[in-house]
């Protein structure tokens, strides 16, 4: 399976068609879609591509879900189908979005539920040193293109002691992650995805004591209740971001990181 790394506009103007997906659908459903459409590439609809606002989703709504819906509508017949995560590994909004996209676009939506693998895999990228943004993006890409042996070896060799933690889903805007040092470990849903258990609530809510962690939630996401409680319990900082990263939020994260880091 291959990920399509073109932009939304590039795909729209091209003659190619892609398989859209959101969340972390089970590998077997993704492979099945790949087989049915002769190895067509996959396009991650969660990502912000500045798609035209469809107006299908209310303004006061999770930006990630809005990305999924607006991207799918913008792509229209450039989509072979959408493989949609709709179970507890995503959220109710994933289920609703699947219905909405099917109705509006007429494109086939494959409704999936990811129960997760029996034993969790190793959190390689989540615990290695390096750009947090790059590691989280690669974690999401690995849903379609798993880490190569070389990447796995490198991640293990680069494993570091954490100075900070980031808990949550990949954020919108993704630039939030540029504020974190390279020694930031990843927790929450993103870690669950790397470990192959995106619906594992116990794993999602497990964080080490004593580590300064930013608990991120996307505005209007139900996970904000987890983020708030975990931040309180572990003396971390809860940050809720909707459309844009304000100067105040940026300052809060910078200050938290600067003032509470474990010096290495």
């Amino acid at each position: 399976m291959l990920l399509n790394r073109k932009t939304l506009s590039e795909i729209i103007v091209s003659n190619s068609r892609v398989i859209g997906f959101w969340g972390a659908p089970p590998g077997r459903d993704l492979e099945e879609a790949s087989r049915r459409f002769d190895g067509a590439t996959f396009f991650d609809l969660d990502v912000f591509y500045d798609a035209k606002k469809s107006g299908a989703v209310p303004d006061a709504f999770c930006h990630i879900i809005r990305n999924c819906v607006d991207n799918a509508i913008a792509l229209g017949d450039r989509l072979h189908c959408v493989v949609a995560a709709t179970g507890p590994e995503k959220c109710d909004a994933g289920r609703f979005a699947a219905r909405l996209v099917e109705e509006i676009t007429g494109v086939e939506v494959v409704v999936t539920v990811n129960e997760g693998r029996k034993d969790p895999g190793a959190p390689l990228l989540c615990e290695s040193r390096g750009s947090l943004k790059k590691r989280i993006i690669r974690t999401m890409e690995a849903i379609i293109e798993p880490l190569t042996s070389d990447e796995q070896r490198r991640a293990m060799a680069d494993r570091c002691e954490p100075t900070h933690g980031f808990w949550g889903t990949p954020p919108h805007p993704i630039e939030v992650l540029d504020l974190f040092p390279e020694t930031t470990h990843v927790f929450g849903w993103t870690r669950c995805v790397e470990q192959g258990r995106p619906a594992d609530l116990d794993l999602e809510t497990t964080v080490p004591d004593g580590l300064p962690i930013v608990f991120f939630s996307q505005g209007f996401c139900a996970k904000s209740m987890l983020a708030k409680q975990l931040a309180h319990k572990h003396r971390g900082m809860h940050v809720d971001v909707h459309d844009t990263l304000s100067a105040a939020t940026m300052a809060k994260i910078e200050a938290f990181i600067r003032l509470s880091g474990v010096k290495t």
């Binding site: 300064p212 003396r235 900082m237 304000s246 105040a248 300052a251 809060k252 003032l259």
Partner: peptide, 17 residues
Amino acid sequence: LVAFAGRRPVKLDWSVG
């Protein structure tokens, strides 16, 4: 606003809006 617990920041807020 900054609130500290054990001299570590546990609440940072800025009502800039």
